[in-house]
Design a protein around this nucleic acid. Structure first.
Length: 811
DNA sequence: AGCACGCCGACT
DNA sequence: GTCGGCGTGCTC
């Protein structure tokens, strides 16, 4: 039997299956999708079996046997193997990269090199290395050792390895860890237990306590966790271990599944009565679920229109058919509130996959899916690969979110994968959003997707009133602060009414850049073409891209003036300002800096939700999903901060973000108000937020996209080149551009070479070229050709070329 | 990616 | 004459 194996070596030359003989002992158990360890050249690597065959085209005398079979139950299903095959071509990735990205991190291979001193030839070890082998004959990590050793020592070690005095071992490991728990049971019957208690020495009071507890509450043969027994009887585990030693108790370790939500009780919720709009929305979806057909629905519902309830009830129908559901939510809105809603409705049938979980926890959640213990998976982007085998529905909430696009290879978009899986399983895919991406809405209008609209909020709660505040006007009236008078008044009123306020600012930290008022000098990173950011806590200026850090200059390095000032505003600065203006108000600040610690996100939100704070101040992450009844004012401090980014989607993002933020206000009985501070109140992406008019925005933006030749009118491909030498980057990008122009059809446009928006990062120059096309059958082939041409150079030098077939980050 | 094989310069 | 530089090619 022959196994076709994709090995874990991500380069062009090995991007194909290699044949291995399946040893007899594995023949029974081996299946496609299983991980294996194989000898590959001189070393051992991990690989995936993609198929099994009886013959091989390869020289039979050169075939090697599989070294090890890792999985009895393959982690990748047949369907996922097929999906990987499709996705590798779609994203121009190596086969192995796609396969690996379908698994939780804990199941991916780790390679470890160790050095072992040969016992027989110990005496030949050069004196310079002897200090490393005093304690043991093994150096556990070759990588760590290399970091600490001197050049001379490294040379010595190389020759010792060559002479076989020191042996190198390559280990392939996965870091699946099982969490264990110690449990005990009685080793004696109750009668014997009573005698044991009677015969305990008088000073063994703690032990007596334990045994008496067991006598009363535990039946023979019942297992009890040691930790539980310890707390219940108020003794340390040491006491219990003593009793094990005395053979009154038997102890064993069992493997338990980590459940991140184990200590939380979720009251079960029942389906809510639907509004007529929700009812109408659910109907065509149910129809597809019933008939088992694929269709992609675009569910456009205004904020607060109750999309989640539609999802929940659609899933309920799918589960009743014995099928499974995947729900994708943006990482950032994978809030406890969201998770709670799913847990409350479906209880322990839900697995949750998000980045706040540890590697081990993620692995356990994933395993529940693979073992069929759950039938709903809620998670961020990568949950789209949940290994279900009988999918009945896929839901992508906030489908316009850019976090669904992976920015590393394989550069896939979860939406594209979702629709592919939906076709395969003949099940509906629902894309939900208040502000759909232009691509999706355009497709819905063309009839490629089915459009479902929900225009009203549940309980007929009114949309909040949006006021635009012209900050140029404020400036003219002499107000140079970050708050307009109107917003200050608004805050004041809410504070006095004991209502809550959300303030939104799209930038963390304190100030953005440091400038000299006399000569205009701006502190720049020496390694990247970007200005340095002021960090107040460390009293330094830092580079956002490479981490370079300097102390704040006291005087201008250019003109020696002392008029060095900080410009721009971050959340930290706003917080300080608020404390000055409203000394009694309680502010919760939420940004990357305050939510870095595990669980911090949840804690801050709870604080605010319980009314222990008046103002929630934050970045992006507060824009989504929060739903607190007492919020009556939402303030956007700088609406146009993302409007002027060099990206054709900047208007779309501005509109989406402002709409999301506005949606946080007045979701319940109390009417909400939104105040948007802006320097460009006439821009349509801001005006249409005021009118709550998605359609109007869509029409205007479509005109702009058509003129610029951007999606959804054209497809894009971005080819990005970076290298240490500027002339080389330009030359290569130039070559690629002219190659593309030559090879692609006339209707396709190729732009470039141009410098990237940030032309240098970490001392590497960055250039790019862009392809805009409508139909281009040769495209994949031509792009593969480029990668092939430069793969050798990329391996040898610092050259990097990335190709993104559906770019979101234009920087 | 690793690692071996192979062909040209400065050293015991 | 050899040690060692890194270009080229292979891994079932």
């Amino acid at each position: 039997m022959i196994a076709k194996v994709i090995v874990d070596v991500a380069v062009n030359q090995t991007d194909r299956a290699f044949d291995y003989i399946v040893p007899v002992e594995f023949q029974e158990a081996i299946m496609p999708g299983a991980r294996v360890t194989v000898s590959f050249g001189p070393r051992k690597v991990q690989g995936f079996v993609v198929s099994l065959d009886s013959t091989s085209d390869y020289d039979a005398t050169k075939l090697k046997p599989l070294y090890d079979l890792i999985d009895l139950k393959p982690p990748l299903t047949k369907e996922l193997l097929n999906l990987a095959n499709w996705l590798k071509d779609e994203t121009l990735s190596f086969h192995i990269s796609v396969l690996k990205s379908m698994l939780p991190a804990a199941m991916r291979a780790k390679y470890h090199k160790t050095l072992t001193l040969s016992e027989a030839r110990k005496s030949e070890l050069p004196p310079g290395l002897q200090s490393y082998f005093i304690k043991s004959n093994v150096i556990e990590s070759w990588e760590d050792w290399r970091k600490s050793a001197s050049e001379h020592e490294k040379k010595l070690m190389m020759s010792a390895v060559k002479e076989d005095v020191v042996l190198v071992t390559n280990r392939v490991k996965t870091n699946e860890t099982k969490k264990t728990q110690s449990v005990i049971k009685l080793a004696v019957n109750k009668e014997e237990l009573q005698t044991a208690i009677d015969h305990l020495s008088a000073n063994a009071s703690k032990q007596r306590q334990v045994l008496e507890y067991l006598y009363e509450f535990i039946s023979e043969g019942e297992w009890l966790p040691v930790s539980e027994l310890a707390t219940k009887t108020n003794v340390t585990r040491q006491t219990i271990l003593q009793l094990v030693k005395k053979q009154f108790l038997i102890k064993k370790d069992i493997i338990i599944s980590r459940d991140p939500y184990a200590d939380r009780d979720f009251a079960r919720s029942n389906p809510l009565p639907l509004t007529s709009e929700q009812e109408t929305a659910l109907m065509p979806i149910s129809e597809m679920i019933k008939t088992g057909k694929h269709a992609t629905f675009l569910l456009r519902g205004v904020t607060g229109s109750g999309k989640t309830e539609v999802y929940l009830q659609a899933i309920d129908r799918v589960l009743k058919q014995g099928k499974e559901a995947i729900v994708l939510v943006p990482e950032i809105s994978l809030t406890p509130q969201m998770v709670t809603r799913f847990k409350e409705r479906f209880g322990s049938r839900v697995a949750v996959l998000h980045s706040a979980l540890s590697k081990g926890e993620k692995y356990d959640e994933w395993l529940k899916i693979r073992e069929g213990k759950v039938d709903v998976a809620v998670g961020a982007r990568s949950a789209i690969f949940a290994p279900f085998e009988n999918l009945g529905i896929i839901i992508i909430d906030e489908e316009h979110e850019t976090s669904y696009k992976q920015e590393e290879t394989p550069r896939y978009h979860a939406r594209q994968v979702a629709i592919k899986r939906g076709e395969l399983y003949q099940c509906p895919v629902i894309l939900g959003s208040a502000t759909p991406s232009l691509e999706s809405y355009a497709r819905a209008r063309k009839g490629v997707y089915q459009l479902i609209s929900m225009e009203h909020r549940v309980n007929n709660v009114q949309m909040p009133e949006v006021t635009l505040i012209d900050m140029r006007e404020e400036l003219r009236n002499g107000n140079r602060s970050m708050f307009s008078n109107q917003l200050l008044e608004g805050i004041q009123t809410r504070l006095s009414r004991k209502e809550q306020i959300v303030l939104f600012l799209n930038r963390r930290g304190y100030a953005t850049f440091v400038m000299c008022r006399d000569c205009g000098y701006v502190a720049q990173c020496p390694h990247c073409d970007i200005s340095l950011t002021y960090h107040r806590t460390s009293q330094s200026i830092q580079c956002h891209y490479c981490g370079h850090s300097e102390t704040i200059p006291g005087v201008c390095p250019e003109c020696a003036s002392d008029s060095i000032r900080f410009f721009g505003t971050g959340t930290q600065k706003v917080e300080e300002e608020l404390m000055k203006l409203f000394p009694d108000c309680r502010v919760v600040r939420m940004d990357v800096d305050t939510t870095r610690r595990k669980g911090a996100h949840e804690k801050l939100l709870t604080t605010f939700g319980e009314g222990k704070a008046d103002i929630l101040l934050g970045t992006q992450m507060i824009a989504k999903g929060l739903d607190f009844p007492n919020i009556t004012l939402v303030g956007v401090l700088a609406a146009d901060s993302m409007l002027h980014l060099p990206d054709f989607r900047s208007a779309e993002r501005t509109f989406q973000l402002l709409t999301q933020v506005s949606g946080r206000a007045g979701r319940h009985e109390k009417k909400g108000e939104v105040m948007v501070q802006t320097y460009t109140p006439d821009h349509y992406s801001i005006l249409d937020v005021k009118q709550h008019d998605y359609l109007s925005f869509f029409e205007k933006e479509m005109v702009v996209r058509k003129q610029g030749g951007y999606p959804p009118y054209y497809y894009l491909v971005l080819i990005h080149v970076s290298e240490e030498r500027l002339d080389k980057v330009i030359a290569i990008t130039e070559k690629i551009t002219s190659f593309l122009k030559r090879e692609l059809s006339e209707n396709t446009s190729v732009y470039g070479p141009v410098a990237s928006a940030i032309p240098r990062i970490k001392d590497r120059y960055r250039y790019q070229c862009m392809v805009k096309y409508k139909v281009e059958p040769k495209l994949t082939h031509v792009l593969q050709e480029i990668m092939k041409t430069y793969q050798g150079e990329m391996a040898r030098t610092s050259l990097t070329i990335t190709i993104d077939t559906n770019p979101y980050m234009m920087l």
